[in-house]
Amino acid sequence: MMAGKVTGLQQGAGRIFVVSALFLIAGTFLWAIQVLPVIWYWAEVIILFPPCCLSLGLWWMARGRRGDVPFVGY
């Protein structure tokens, strides 16, 4: 997930997004049919929601650019 020289960054982020989103949907479904206990469902959401959220944006626009030095040119 870290930007740098990785060229497949967007691809990787896309995969993370798809996997976490699938897990979230599956979790919701399993909870709705009362297979998954509610506490596990919540744990799943708390763990997976943040990466799902970030990887969507990264998949969209992370170009794998080299970082710059802050504090220069403000």
Partner: peptide, 30 residues
Amino acid sequence: FSFKSTWVPETASPGLFVGIVLVAIGIWTA
């Protein structure tokens, strides 16, 4: 912001720089 080009500053501590965003979302979800 989500549609903007994103990278990590050269001087940053990458693990913490990214991880802290996940933690921020995670704790409030909790």
